[in-house]
């Protein structure tokens, strides 16, 4: 199947910061690519380039087969963008915002109004649709912004952290909407900080850090690389970390990671609660004093720990 989004060797520098450092990516028609990465990884920069807001310093990108640098207007006709920060007009009502976007996609007055009504309904904003956006909550703005991306029912959607700021119900609703769009043939590139979200929505996941791809695959492939669940044990005495590691080694399905500073040991396991119980028993047998223990699903941090061998560097990015 053809790739509706394709980028190769994207480089973008801001003075001394290299936001993108030779990024390649591809999204097959009708599929969802989840772009996963910590703060400052370059997700927004990548989306901005693909959505024609930014020009790369090097590399090339095609969206719906069209070069983003040489024919940005033609690209814009075929994409919907919902950026990381809601881009809506505070003083217009929700309805007026969507009508304006529809008219700027050249839908025509009548179609633009009809479409605005449909989308307000779809995003649970029908009641608030007649109120100025400045009276909306953060989650409502976010939903309105997402609705704006769908106005022209574009073949390609770019969603930058679409569910950040939504409550769990709103998040689930949005997932449904996105699945519906993909079912209808839309191609989606979405960024997220949550592995679970990528897991729910994405056909393929691209993990990036420091502007470079560090892993790619389906959610299952990535998970099998990092283990499905992990036991996290914090010991009372740092000296007990090594004995704890030894005690739990036989449960590990992947590499164990010990962090001396937080006196925490992470052991990837398979088998869930019974294994946890057995592990606790093992620790008690070895007389290791445990301060805290828990069974966790893998997080983005675990992906990074495993893929890069270090905790993702905390970035101070001035947003």
């Amino acid at each position: 199947m053809a790739n509706l989004v394709e980028a190769s060797g994207l480089v973008k520098r801001y003075r001394e910061v290299t936001a993108l450092d030779g990024l390649d990516l591809a999204v097959a028609e009708g599929s969802v690519l989840g772009l996963l990465g910590p703060n400052g990884a370059g997700k927004t920069t990548a989306v901005s380039i693909l959505a024609t807001l930014l020009e790369p310093d090097a590399g090339s990108a095609r969206v719906a087969g069209i070069d983003v640098r040489s024919r940005p207007r033609d690209v814009r006709r075929r994409i919907g963008l919902s950026g990381q920060f809601a881009a809506v007009d505070e003083h217009l009502t929700g309805f007026e915002n969507l009508v304006m976007v529809g008219r700027l996609y050249h839908l025509g007055r009548h179609r633009a109004r009809a479409r605005a009504g449909e989308l307000l309904e779809l995003f649970d904003l029908a009641e608030a649709g007649g109120r100025p956006v400045k009276t909306y909550s953060g989650g409502m703005r976010r939903r309105l912004d997402l609705a704006g991306a769908l106005v022209a029912a574009p073949p390609v959607l770019f969603l930058d952290e679409p569910t950040t700021g939504l409550d769990p119900q709103g998040r689930r609703q949005l997932w449904e909407v996105i699945r519906g769009m993909v079912g209808g043939g839309t191609t989606v590139l979405l960024t997220t900080q949550y592995l679970e979200e990528a897991d729910q929505l994405a056909d393929r996941i691209l993990v990036i850090d420091h502007g470079r791809a560090i892993a790619e695959g389906t959610a299952d492939e990535l998970k099998s690389r990092i283990g499905a669940e992990r036991i996290e044990v914090t010991v009372t005495d740092g000296a007990a970390l090594e004995p704890a590691r030894a005690a739990l080694a036989r449960f590990a399905v992947g590499e164990q990671l010990a962090d001396g500073r937080s006196r925490t040991l992470i052991t990837p396991i398979a088998g869930g609660a019974p294994v946890l119980a057995a592990a606790l028993h093992e620790l008690a047998q070895a007389h290791i004093a445990v301060r805290d223990v828990g069974l966790r699903r893998p997080t983005l941090d675990d992906v990074f720990l495993t893929l890069t061998g270090h905790v993702s560097a905390p970035e101070e990015n001035g947003q």
Partner: peptide, 17 residues
Amino acid sequence: QKGIINRFRALPMSRSA
């Protein structure tokens, strides 16, 4: 400042509009 310019810049509208 409010970011809505990004919405406009990603729309197929005339660049002088």
